[in-house]
Amino acid sequence: GATAVSEWTEYKTADGKTLYYNNRTLESTWEKPQELK
């Protein structure tokens, strides 16, 4: 079967924080998503 690919993209901001963006739900979060833990 196909492996579930994470929908989350990780961005590094200018101040060194990490922003997570979900390509499916168009949601963005500063918290690390469950799927990435």
Rank of each mutant, 00 (worst) to 15 (best):
G1M: 12
G1R: 02
G1F: 14
G1S: 12
G1N: 13
G1L: 14
G1V: 12
A2T: 13
A2Y: 13
A2R: 03
A2L: 12
A2P: 12
A2K: 07
T3L: 12
T3D: 13
T3F: 11
T3I: 12
T3Y: 07
T3M: 12
A4Q: 14
A4I: 13
A4W: 14
A4S: 14
V5D: 11
V5R: 03
V5M: 13
S6N: 11
S6A: 12
S6F: 07
S6K: 09
S6R: 08
S6Q: 11
S6D: 11
S6P: 11
E7D: 11
E7Q: 06
E7Y: 07
E7P: 05
E7F: 06
W8G: 01
W8Q: 01
W8K: 01
W8I: 02
W8R: 00
W8M: 00
T9N: 05
T9R: 07
T9E: 11
T9V: 14
T9S: 10
E10H: 04
E10P: 04
E10Q: 08
E10W: 13
E10L: 09
Y11P: 00
Y11A: 03
Y11D: 02
Y11G: 03
K12Y: 10
K12I: 14
K12L: 11
T13W: 05
T13Y: 10
T13F: 13
T13G: 07
T13H: 05
T13N: 08
A14I: 11
A14K: 11
A14Q: 10
A14R: 07
A14N: 08
A14V: 10
A14G: 07
A14L: 10
D15P: 01
D15A: 06
D15Q: 04
D15K: 03
D15G: 09
G16Q: 02
G16I: 00
G16S: 01
K17F: 05
K17Q: 10
K17D: 06
T18V: 12
T18S: 07
T18Q: 03
T18Y: 07
T18H: 04
T18L: 08
L19W: 15
L19V: 11
L19F: 15
L19E: 06
L19P: 01
Y20K: 00
Y20P: 01
Y21N: 02
Y21T: 09
Y21R: 08
Y21H: 08
N22T: 00
N22Y: 02
N22R: 00
N22V: 00
N22P: 03
N22D: 03
N23A: 06
N23D: 09
N23W: 11
R24V: 15
R24D: 11
R24Y: 15
R24W: 15
T25D: 03
L26A: 12
L26S: 13
E27K: 06
E27S: 04
E27R: 03
E27G: 03
E27H: 04
S28K: 10
S28I: 15
S28N: 05
S28Q: 11
S28V: 15
T29P: 00
T29V: 10
T29M: 05
T29R: 08
T29K: 05
W30L: 09
W30Q: 06
W30G: 05
W30A: 10
W30I: 07
E31K: 06
E31T: 10
E31P: 02
E31C: 05
K32S: 04
K32W: 03
K32I: 10
K32L: 09
P33R: 00
P33V: 01
Q34W: 10
Q34F: 11
Q34D: 15
Q34E: 15
E35D: 10
E35A: 13
E35P: 07
E35T: 07
E35W: 04
L36A: 04
L36S: 06
L36P: 05
L36W: 09
L36Y: 12
L36I: 09
K37M: 15
K37L: 15
K37E: 14
K37Y: 14
